[in-house]
């Protein structure tokens, strides 16, 4: 048993060193801009860059739109599958897991060829169309996480009984969806939403290939041309990712607390 614990500690410490070094490295590097002393200069430069603000707010907007579209797609679908079409569950699950197998670059390549200006649905012809296509692509990327989160959330409630109870009180589908189902899976939806946010904010390949001014391609551009700013950007995005995960935890814990006190 003692040996057991020794190996446990070794594995943990080895892993922690591996994870800590790059984080320390990027943080230290981001402070090195001024020669001979540590400073926040790199952050100052980054935050003052209008392109930073523009691309960042663009990506935030897209993330929010993605979350909305993703929720509108997955919640009713997962609900409906559980309620009426349980035999289709494996199929739907398979489809939602596909984005983990088909690389995003292949998907976006398909978009470019399929929805170009000479096609039936020339989405890439207009800026709005391209933005929509990007949101659709991000939604596809978020499917595996969102669908699983929602489906797990639905498993915890008795969909059948809730629906029948609501129907017997005369509620329509829209009311059932927004008043009964959504509040009950809100925690799951929020978890999926924060995860989606973290993914979309730094996403590179879709935005770059669709030529949209998103945060990911901006970071890549800075990386190719500057020395210290990229490290600052890495610290910032690590912070954002951390915040998203922290929010997931917070929401989950809060809901557990309220559920326990009920």
């Amino acid at each position: 048993m003692k040996g057991n614990r020794f190996w446990a500690w070794s594995a943990l410490i080895f892993g922690l060193i591996y994870f800590a070094l790059p984080l320390i490295g990027m943080t230290e590097f981001s402070f090195r801009m001024r020669r001979g002393e540590y400073s926040f200069d790199a952050y100052r430069v980054v935050l003052a860059d209008p392109n930073f603000r523009a691309t960042f707010s663009y990506s935030v907007t897209l993330a929010v739109l993605t979350i909305i579209l993703s929720v509108c797609l997955t919640v009713p679908t997962a609900y409906w599958v559980r309620l009426r079409m349980p035999r289709w569950r494996p199929v739907i699950e398979f489809v939602t897991l596909l984005p983990l197998v088909v690389p995003p670059i292949v998907i976006v390549f398909g978009y470019i060829r399929l929805y170009n200006t000479s096609s039936l649905l020339p989405l890439t012809g207009t800026i709005t169309g391209t933005n929509a296509l990007l949101v659709a692509g991000y939604t596809v990327l978020s499917l595996p996480y969102m669908y699983r989160a929602v489906d797990t959330g639905l498993r915890a409630i008795d969909v059948q009984t809730l629906t029948e109870a609501a129907q017997s009180l005369g509620a329509g589908w829209f009311t059932i969806m927004t008043r009964i189902i959504l509040p009950n899976v809100l925690v799951a939806v929020l978890s999926g939403a924060f995860l989606t946010f973290a993914i979309v904010i730094g996403e590179f390949v879709l935005a770059a290939l669709l030529n949209r001014p998103a945060f990911g391609p901006y970071m890549q551009l800075i990386g190719a041309n500057r020395a210290y700013e990229p490290a600052a950007l890495a610290v910032i995005s690590f912070g954002i990712t951390w915040a998203c995960m922290g929010l997931i935890q917070l929401v989950t814990r809060f809901s557990q607390a309220t559920r326990a006190s009920r």
Binding site: M26, G202, G216, M219, G223, P230, A234
Partner: peptide, 9 residues
């Protein structure tokens, strides 16, 4: 992208 920066740094 940021992961690459971290390792470069």
């Amino acid at each position: 992208v940021p992961l690459a920066f971290a390792f470069l740094a």
